[in-house]
């Protein structure tokens, strides 16, 4: 049956409208759960708040379990879903840069726009920083291009590259996630409380 738009159960023209609605809902939930606060986001690096870790880990686990059940019941064809292509070194270097920016600025690109929406000045400065970064990257594109387009691995998933059964992998991943949540709670209790 699904995915709904590629199989034309929903006309293609609705694509952008649905994306807009999902985007608004996503931004609302981000804001409502406090993700527009740079202190809360940076807390995961300093050990006083692990909400970011918990939210994104839970989102990943819930969606993969849900997708596999829906694939089994025939509601979604998991083979038709988009898998982000892997450019290995581009992803590693970009991830390090992005992580450094995350620690320093206290936002990731999505949440910074959330912060801008509620009028936080540090978020605005952060977005200007993003723009400067984009500008530098595009100016030096010819220099970065071999890394940007190189080391292409195709649209692979962890299960493909590890060669394990997806179901065992997901069970392991879930248990790992739950253990990580419990451990992060222990860490949080030991670290001095920060009020923000």
């Amino acid at each position: 049956m699904g995915p709904l738009i590629p199989n034309e159960l929903i006309p293609y023209e609705w694509n952008n409208i649905i994306a807009l609605l999902i985007g608004i809902a996503f931004g609302y939930i981000l804001e409502a759960s406090g993700f527009s606060s740079s202190r809360k986001l940076a807390g995961v690096f300093y050990g006083y708040d692990f909400v970011v870790l918990k939210v994104f880990f839970t989102a990943a686990i819930v969606s993969i379990i849900g997708l596999l059940y829906m694939d089994y019941l025939g509601y979604v064809d998991i083979g038709q879903l988009y898998i982000h292509p892997t450019y290995l070194w581009g992803a590693i270097i970009g991830g390090i840069i992005m992580g450094a920016g995350f620690v320093a600025g206290g936002f990731c690109p999505g949440t910074s726009l959330c912060g801008v929406a509620i009028g936080k000045i540090d978020a605005m400065v952060y977005v200007v920083g993003i723009m400067i970064g984009v500008f530098i990257f595009s100016e030096l594109y010819t220099f970065f291009e071999p890394i940007y387009n190189g080391y292409f691995q195709g649209n692979i998933t962890l299960m493909d590259s590890l060669g394990v059964s997806p179901f065992w992998f997901i069970l392991f991943f879930t248990i790992f996630g739950v253990v990580a949540f419990a451990a992060s709670d222990l860490v949080r209790k030991r670290v001095k409380k920060v009020f923000y």
Binding site: I65, L68, Y69, F167, L171, T174, I175, V178
Partner: peptide, 19 residues
Amino acid sequence: QYVVLALILILAAAGLLLL
């Protein structure tokens, strides 16, 4: 509640294995 939620997640993941 969080323990219960975590158990539900693990059970759901284990259920995939039994399909």
